[in-house]
Design a binder for these strands. Structure first.
Lengths: 257, 257
DNA sequence: GATAAGATTCGACATTACCGAACAGCGTTC
DNA sequence: GAACGCTGTTCGGTAATGTCGAATCTTATC
């Protein structure tokens, strides 16, 4: 709403896509005169939100963002409560687990527990995945009609041959998710990777996050015991967060149905 | 420089300190009328930089920060180059290692390698430590006179009985750091914890980060082999980043001497 | 059910940030 | 080696913009 904040956020967004940009590149990207962009960038720089390349004239994201995000993660009750159960869940199932929340039509991973076998794995905290192509996203959207409408109103990107790009098909998927409190995905985002997710409920009924088990595609479908373990973890975490019932009553959450 | 961005950054800073605040609390903290703060907060909210407590009227930091910081970490060449050597270093020394950069008189940890013994340890990436009370900070300040002056111009907080709070004493410490390319700290920030740090150099001469080995205080002073390992790691990483010489020639970096 | 505290909306005002033009600093080209 | 062009930066006039006070609405408290 406030113009200069909108523009500042736009600059951060641009720098998020292209790691380093000069003033004129930013100006072109924002469709603004360079002098305007210069003022905005300098303001952001003075707060450590962007930094100037040493000795250069290009800018990138700054370390203050890391501190802010570190505090953000600490403020999430869902996350702190989930960590030990996710560790347990990964141990029991031998699979990686992810905890995710909604962010503008995508899912952002707020905690990632590695597969317990010692293989080298990227930490995925902070990674974003399109909602319509992930188990986490399907669960989050199924219980959040406002965001679901938003996502479905735009064209759905196809990431693999399996990605669901038909809005009507996705709506049917959401129906299924609400019936079973279970979201599935088989090589829809990344080839060779499949996952299963369930909602995390807090303060009565609201779905605040989703918890997923991620397995290699050749282990799909997973054993029934994995689903049971996931269900127990999701229910336990939800109870600790003050959920009145789990699975959540989701029959009429999506107003469009 | 731009007022509304300054204020927006101030709001983020306040939310960094107190995890959740209402509009009027923020207004009090910023010494501004509530309606003004409301506009700023709503703008930040529309970009996911802050979020409103579900069903409540308080605000906290938002998930967009996590995505931004995740990209920030990816943009750091120092970090990506250091990770594998830090893993190696932790393996050889049996100690935790940290990589840090300067942020407004503090050090922010941009990568943390756990001690290899299986004990439960917090991930520390994103944590900040006062520069004057850490080995990382001493190294960074010793090679950066501008920030050193800035830090010394303000009173130095005492974190433990060992914290150096006398500016003159710190300047002498910096001299020593530049002679040996080695910063030390023994229970100056956290009781029971000691560390040793060395500079990481990139693009010729500029010190862009510092690398530390962290050990329990009762293992202090560390064996000479640890210092050797650290030196080799710091030199190797620096060379990969295009350093012309290591240790850096630091004799006259601090203009005040 | 009444009261109060806080959040939110709205509109007039003047402060504020925006923009164009001029300047400076480099690297490149001829 | 000089002129050019590109990019970043500075500056000041202008009007668009964000700010602020009062009014309204919402939620918690007693």
């Amino acid at each position: 709403m406030i113009q200069s904040i909108d523009r500042a956020a736009g600059i951060l967004q641009l720098l998020q896509g292209a790691r380093r940009l000069g003033i004129s590149e930013l100006a072109a990207g924002m469709d603004l005169p360079p002098s305007t962009v210069h003022g905005l960038v300098k303001s952001l720089q003075s707060h450590g939100l962007v930094v100037q390349e040493t000795g250069g004239n290009r800018y990138g994201l700054g370390p203050a963002l890391l501190k802010l995000s570190s505090v953000y993660l600490d403020t999430l009750d869902v996350r702190s409560r989930s960590i030990r159960w996710m560790h347990e869940l990964s141990g029991r199932t031998g699979a990686a687990t992810r905890l995710g929340v909604e962010l503008f039509g995508e899912v952002i991973v707020i905690h990632h527990e590695r597969r317990p076998d010692g293989t080298e794995q990227m930490p995925e905290t902070g990674v974003t995945i399109p909602s319509h192509a992930s188990a986490l996203g399907k669960v989050l959207l199924a219980y959040d009609s406002a965001h679901a409408d938003d996502v479905l109103s735009r064209p759905l990107a196809s990431l693999t041959a399996e990605t669901i790009v038909d809005p009507a098909a996705l709506l049917r998927v959401f129906d299924g998710v609400r019936m079973t409190a279970l979201g599935l995905e088989h090589e829809e985002a990344v080839i060779g990777e499949s996952s299963m997710a369930m909602p995390i409920v807090a303060d009565g009924h609201s779905v605040v996050a989703a918890l997923a088990v991620v397995v290699p595609a050749d282990e799909w479908p997973v054993a029934g015991s994995v689903e049971t373990e996931l269900r127990m973890a999701a229910r336990t975490i939800s109870r600790e967060l003050g959920a009145r019932s789990w699975p959540p009553a989701g029959g009429s959450q999506n107003s469009r149905l």
